[in-house]
Nucleic acid binder design. Structure first.
Lengths: 165, 165
DNA sequence: TAATTACGGATAATGGATATCCGTAATAAA
DNA sequence: TTTATTACGGATATCCATTATCCGTAATTA
């Protein structure tokens, strides 16, 4: 079970966009170069973010992407779900219904009024995962980066980005 | 991102094995028939459980599988990790190192002494997921099943299984 | 001796993830 | 007005993990 690499790309791109000045846009080409990933494919991830209302795309020269909401109002979960989808990681295929002993039983005796107990445990873990991701916003991430990334690199990167907006 | 269907199968098989009498074995063939899944492929999942020390296989006629530990000492996490692996769902490929601004920097200024901040958030969510799964044992599951599955079906299935051990 | 079983290796078949290419419309700069 | 730049979406190809099947071997029981 592995998240798509686009999830990683989308998160890093959002981290960059969170550092942008107001009404500045950064195009796909530069986001791709900054992260060393294929531009055309990264574009798909950014389009997913756009459709989810997390970023806004602007056409034309001096166009590009910016966040559609304040960084404090965008969580990791928002980004992950935009790219990866909102479906649970556990798909219950109801194999309990294949139990041959159920053949003769009907209605309540078949006992599938409640969801499968195993699925419920798996879904609860999924919920815990999402809750954890929803507890961290892009603003939180920015704060952490300022503390852990050396100031020179932080500054140089900001300048690199700024020059392309 | 989707867990393998073998995870679902393994969990249901373990639930059945947890209901077995002491020193009884249930072969792959019957576990496959009970759940309506291909026997040869289910066998792979059971082998993974066996390698992880969760179940024990016994050869020969009247052979088959049984739990290797008490049901209270086997958690959902144990089973999921046995089939799915222990790796994180988020793979950090360190794309931050592709930042062209790092080119001129060395050592501490490059700033990768600490793991990537984004990866840390993702891994923390992964930890929460595993913690949730580790909080539920097969004994817990058995208790839930006794409460939620209709007694007739529960009894009939137990008899069906018993007859094949 | 014969039947049954776990186990592991080898080998397809399938489908989603990954990646590329191109056309269209919008927009800004020249 | 013209040209260049950009997001966006459709179409297509490639790759690889998952899914699935088959078979040989060794152990064990009847």
């Amino acid at each position: 079970m592995q998240l798509k690499n686009q999830v990683e790309w989308a998160l890093h791109c959002c981290a960059i966009l969170a550092g942008l000045g107001p009404d500045r846009h950064l195009p796909t080409k530069d986001l791709a170069e900054l992260h060393g990933v294929p531009k055309e494919y990264l574009s798909k991830a950014l389009q997913a973010l756009s459709q989810a209302g997390i970023v806004e795309g602007t056409l034309g020269p001096s166009g590009g992407y910016r966040l559609a909401r304040p960084a404090g109002a965008i969580t990791f979960l928002n980004i992950v779900e935009a790219v990866e989808g909102k479906g649970s990681s556990f798909a219950c295929t109801e194999i309990r219904k294949n139990n041959p002993c159920r053949g003769s039983m009907s209605g309540a005796a078949a006992g599938d009024s409640r969801p499968c107990a195993i699925a419920r445990v798996m879904w609860e873990a999924d919920r815990a995962w999402r809750e954890s991701l929803n507890g961290v916003s892009l603003a939180d991430l920015a704060k952490t980066l300022e503390k852990t990334v050396p100031a020179p690199l932080l500054k140089k990167t900001a300048a690199w980005v700024e020059a392309r907006t």
